[in-house]
């Protein structure tokens, strides 16, 4: 274990400079967020990820946000295990009919003020699964959405840019 730790120590951090907040995201958010929320939350946001029907591709890239290259926590953002601890819901997937109720309940269990980010092309409008008997549609068809990060799947940089846009507006 010492070898691995020592190696990390002498080689310096891998963490890269964070991207600029997403411009389109900033514009979308400007409408949604008010000053009161900013004062209450400070510069930190807790995120609860909800898979409402994704193929798991988006989950892989959301996971990557925690690796040494992107290191989400340095920016005051972190993932939590319960919606009751969350400020932000990151929702992936076309919302399947079978997950609709679970997503609604998760949303209702999240205390105000809260924001919802629809992650990925399927979360935006159902993507290639739109129109199926088993699919409700995009996230916005079930709960209010504040920010959409498109991509199939969006890469970690795009996710980070979106989250920073949210942080700049919300906190």
């Amino acid at each position: 274990m010492r070898k691995v730790l020592f190696d990390s120590f002498i080689r310096g951090p891998l963490t890269e400079k964070a991207p600029k907040p997403d411009e389109a995201g900033l514009a979308e958010l400007a409408k949604a967020v008010n000053r009161a929320a900013r004062t209450r939350l400070g510069r930190s946001l807790s995120i609860r990820q909800v898979d409402a029907g994704s193929c798991n591709g988006c989950e892989l890239e959301i996971h990557a946000l925690n690796n040494a290259f992107y290191d989400l926590e340095r920016l005051g953002l972190h993932f939590v295990a319960s919606p009751r601890h969350a400020d932000v819901l990151m929702v992936t997937g076309p919302v399947t009919k079978s997950m609709r109720e679970a997503l609604k309940r998760t949303y209702n269990a999240t205390p105000d003020p809260k924001w919802v980010i629809a992650v990925g092309t399927c979360a935006a409008d159902g993507g290639i699964f739109a129109g199926s008997y088993a699919v409700e549609g995009g996230v916005k068809d079930v709960v209010p959405v504040d920010l959409t990060i498109p991509g199939c799947p969006p890469n970690p940089k795009a996710l980070l840019a979106g989250l920073l846009a949210l942080l700049q507006n919300a906190a």
């Binding site: 898979d51 029907g53 994704s54 193929c55 798991n56 591709g57 988006c58 989950e59 892989l60 997937g93 076309p94 399947t96 079978s98 997950m99 679970a102 290639i128 699964f129 129109g131 199926s132 008997y133 088993a134 699919v135 199939c152 799947p153």
Partner: peptide, 29 residues
Amino acid sequence: GYVHKGIESLMQGATLEQAGKLAGRTSGD
């Protein structure tokens, strides 16, 4: 069954291009 998206039903009548996209998004990993 919670993430059932009806992939096999969407496949029916699909072109090879559409069907290939669906197949590639059956399990993203």
